[in-house]
Design a protein around this nucleic acid. Structure first.
Lengths: 156, 156
DNA sequence: CAAAAGTATTTCAAGCTCAAAACATTTTTG
DNA sequence: CAAAAATGTTTTGAGCTTGAAATACTTTTG
């Protein structure tokens, strides 16, 4: 019941939801800013680069550019630039797809895998610290409640 | 008890916190993307512009540039550009501060106030829709639990 | 009061982001 | 099979973001 928005703004419920959104935004922006800062200081890298490597790390055989932007939910043109810079640093490579001359596969190099492993370990520790006030149970509980938001976005 | 991170990564708790973070990020990015899209389509505007106007709307007498970037928690240089564009559109004005020739006060124009009122009303409805699966109680409850994240960021 | 330190803002270079347009190649279809 | 539609990627233009450097002014201090 009541999955429909109220007919007009300014109700108690809409105000509570607005406050929740503002708080969510503040929290995730704060954590993001902290991660960005640490990634910059300790690894000379960025969050978008980390995100791309994290996605590639789950696909040993590589991902097509379009699949990559699909997984990350960002625009095509966006990943082009990030992959360019990652490739310059020798962390990923572009490989031609045999049967299709339009497509490229992006794969992490060994160097990329090693670098990502170090960053991912640090990243997990940072999150563990930044979300340190949540117990395991509480965290799992909240994940479930957030399904509500996630599901809304990509349709029921 | 246990507000310190675990001594090593990969524990049950750190994994749960990591999953929570990934979910938070996904949720807020999703909502943000939806808001950005609607702001663009329906008002030809952007989230950063909306954020600046929202901040200014709370200070009838205006804010100094530095106060504005402080409230929004973004860099100084950042607001310069956004305010430039808002000013071009006649939504805000820069006013000299009497006693201090370094500083500028930014204030919304009447046009800016009217435009912001329209956008803010739509924004509240959008949030009400996007977070529609949360009841008022649930939303208030979650706000409280998020204090944990917010407080960590700006020190204990 | 002049030098130094501090404060307010802008500029700069680099990178991220998007939507739309341009290209290149493949697949479909009349 | 040639034209048209679809697919995969990059380019482009505009805006956002940061940290650091530059500018301009104000306050402190020797």
């Amino acid at each position: 019941m009541s999955t429909q928005p109220d007919a007009f703004a300014g109700t108690k419920t809409s105000k509570a939801r607005l406050r929740l959104w503002l708080r969510m935004l503040k929290s995730s922006r704060g954590v993001e800013a902290e991660l960005r800062e640490r990634l910059r200081r300790e690894f000379g890298s960025t969050l978008p680069r980390f995100d791309v490597m994290a996605a590639l790390s789950r696909f040993e055989t590589g991902l097509k550019m379009s699949a990559l932007s699909g997984v990350l939910r960002v625009s095509n043109g966006n990943v082009t630039g990030i992959v360019d810079r990652l490739a310059e640093d020798g962390l990923v490579v572009r490989v031609q797809v045999p049967g299709d001359r339009r497509a490229t596969l992006v794969r992490m190099t060994r160097k990329g895998q090693e670098e990502f492993a170090r960053q991912a370990a640090a990243h997990e520790l940072w999150i563990d610290e930044l979300l340190g006030d949540f117990s395991a149970e509480e965290a799992s509980d909240l994940v479930t409640r957030f399904d509500a938001v996630t599901h809304r976005e990509e349709g029921p």
